[in-house]
Design a binder for these strands. Structure first.
Lengths: 190, 190
DNA sequence: CATGGATTGGACTACGCGGTCCAAAATGCC
DNA sequence: GGCATTTTGGACCGCGTAGTCCAATCCATG
């Protein structure tokens, strides 16, 4: 995997994105290598050429890709929570995003499938949450310099995680709406 | 399954509990029928005798069993959130319980494995959350008759769900501690 | 144009595991 | 005690699917 020509890199990318979409649509448990092969017009040997350790290796790349997306889709707001209007725009974006995907949460599905035992998976997930947390904490410091930014960020990230979990479990978006809205509101009235 | 002698009922129970423990310890994906068979000293035919529809049927029974446990372990507090000291005792119980189980959340693992598509699974999960929500809302009405009990309950359940999710994802209990504590605190200061 | 490495195709293998089956033993019932 | 029903044992089957292998082809570089 050290020498990767542009063509090879493109193929690898095509596999990751194709697999990600497939998994998003059908769930990781219902997607086999043959499905991915068919959806990405590749051959078995290509799959194992670019992911020598097999399926787990591939799912790992998919997970990293999805984790990246989660944060990317919150931009440009997440990196610039410097005013209340930015906070509100961010909140709306987050809620809209989850409302759109409904129960299909790629990350929770993937981590459940891969298992947190794998340190590589764990690294991806904790890394994502760390970055997310830091962005939010930075935002808190920007609008409420006297607040305990770490604690508030923990509360807010927790509210989102809970909202997402309840959305998956019960198909009810209100947990996210209420949790996130109230958390921001209580910060505003601090 | 209509006629079940005491002996049969006992065997069935043994299977469910054994499978539940096994799944709690190793994750649903890593437990096969043979493992369950070995752990419960039963034979293949018994498994299919008591769960004619196979593994899915069995996991369903396990999920129902675990869902029951989640609520049962919050008693006697959950059903009697009529004073702030009861609220605090309940909160401590919930936090202690999750702190003890750490990343092994039986419910999230099971639902992820079974998939929300199955209406039977969905029924178990939503049923559990509905009861949980109702208990909390009753508690809110008891200590803050003027509050919007439904909204507060949504917020609190969401905080717990988020704390549990983050605990599984990052092995960090603070999301639950802070989320639940702050939610109750904000109710108290309402 | 020659050569070696990257890339691709697709048939083939291995096997874990869910599920089936039938016969034997235990149990309940009159 | 005898008949019906439930309970149990465990060998066996079949399928889905991850993973292997080797040959063919593309492509960069000298």
């Amino acid at each position: 995997m050290r020498a990767l020509t542009p063509k090879g890199a493109a193929t690898r990318q095509r596999i990751v994105e194709g697999a990600a979409k497939l998994i998003r649509d059908h769930g990781p448990a219902n997607v086999g290598l043959d499905d991915i092969r068919a959806a990405t017009t590749t051959s078995k040997s290509q799959l194992f050429h670019y992911f020598p350790d097999g399926k787990a290796d591939m799912l790992l790349a998919v997970a990293a890709h999805e984790a990246e997306l989660v944060l990317a889709e919150q931009e440009p707001y997440l990196s610039d929570l410097t005013s209340w209007s930015q906070w509100e725009a961010w909140r709306d974006r987050v809620i809209a995003r989850y409302a759109a995907q409904r129960r299909r949460c790629p990350l929770s599905a993937l981590t459940a499938q891969l298992g947190l035992a794998d340190p590589a998976v764990e690294g991806i997930i904790t890394g994502m949450y760390t970055r997310w947390h830091r962005h939010v904490a930075d935002g808190v410091r920007a609008v409420r310099p006297d607040a305990d930014a770490e604690r508030v960020a923990t509360q807010i990230i927790g509210a989102i995680a809970g909202g997402a979990t309840m959305l998956v479990a019960t198909d009810d978006i209100r947990y996210l709406e209420i949790g996130l809205t109230d958390a921001i509101e209580s910060l505003r009235n601090a």
